[in-house]
């Protein structure tokens, strides 16, 4: 009896003291990123970026992991996050919700981004330059519901070529959640066909994570602009004039291949809001944005 009580007391004391890390420093720049791949490693991916920015900007910088694309947009809109690594669509949505916010940098690869349509070999679908109309009647998975390369663009091109809504083309349509998962699901055959961010595909291919005897790319979309860094318009008021430019400069000067591999990009170049007009038009045309 006494032992039990003691243990319970010990346990509660542990709870009390194990969490004293209550920082309330007001001027921390908080950034986030869309959870587009391997969620268990989001923190490992971006904590070092936070360190880099902190050192370059001279203000505290913190990365917060977020579970969904929509949640990053909401956090950005609520000013709980001031800087974000968005996808094409999520960036457009975020900037619509937060007037004054700007796209400041994009990956070199992001000017010419692509989506790969991948298929399990059991389907018998072969790689081709022409749109694979044979995907009709198969099971199909997108990535996240809010993804540009995993949803918006593939949906747009599929509907354009098939002249039907995706719901009417496929036997079943799913949303895997992220690109890594899309690859895993199509490889395992849970879905026969899928749409995946080409960067994630190439990266996992290089890392030997993909079993090419089971799954391969059957079609590549035309290029479109995708990921970008977007910052809120009111950061200069909080961190001083010219802060936006400082952040932009820090990102453009990011040359460490180790850090760039986290995105994965070969470097960052300037971006502006108007670069993403095609994404906005596409999103409107398929009804994702009113």
């Amino acid at each position: 009896m006494k032992l039990k009580l003691f243990l319970s007391l010990l346990f509660s004391a542990l709870i009390l003291f194990s969490n004293v890390a209550l920082s309330a420093t007001p001027k921390t720049l908080v950034f986030s990123a869309i959870p587009d791949q391997d969620e268990t490693r989001l923190k490992q991916r971006f904590d070092d970026i936070a360190k880099y920015l902190e050192q370059k900007l001279g203000v505290p910088v913190k990365y917060v992991p977020v579970k969904s694309y929509a949640a990053v947009i909401t956090a950005f809109r609520n000013n709980q996050v001031q800087l974000a690594w968005f996808g094409g669509l999520s960036g457009v949505q975020a900037r619509l919700k937060v007037p004054g916010s700007q796209a400041i940098a994009q990956g070199i690869e992001d000017t010419k981004f692509r989506t790969y349509i991948i298929a399990n070999h059991s389907t018998g679908l072969k790689p081709s330059d022409k749109f694979p109309t044979g995907i009709a009647g198969k099971t199909f998975t997108f990535g996240s519901k809010g993804s540009t390369s995993g949803r918006l663009m593939p949906q747009y091109y599929i509907e354009k070529h098939m002249h039907k809504k995706v719901g009417d083309i496929f036997k079943r349509v799913g949303f895997s959640g992220n690109h890594s998962k899309t690859i895993a699901l199509v490889q395992s055959g849970a879905y026969e066909v899928g749409a995946v961010n080409y960067q994630v595909w190439e990266k996992e291919l290089k890392e030997g994570k993909i079993d090419t005897s089971k799954v391969s790319v059957i079609w590549k979309t035309p290029t479109y602009p995708d990921y970008q860094w977007t910052i809120r318009g009111d950061v200069d008021k909080v961190w001083g004039k010219g802060f936006t430019d400082k952040v932009k400069k820090a990102l453009l000067e990011l040359k460490d291949p180790e850090l760039l591999a986290r995105f994965p990009r070969s470097g960052f170049i300037e971006a502006k809001n108007s670069d993403y007009q095609p994404i906005l038009d596409t999103a409107k045309s398929i009804g994702l944005i009113d």
Partner: peptide, 12 residues
Amino acid sequence: IAAPFIVANDST
């Protein structure tokens, strides 16, 4: 009493 300290984060 302890719980609020655990769930606290610095978002406002």
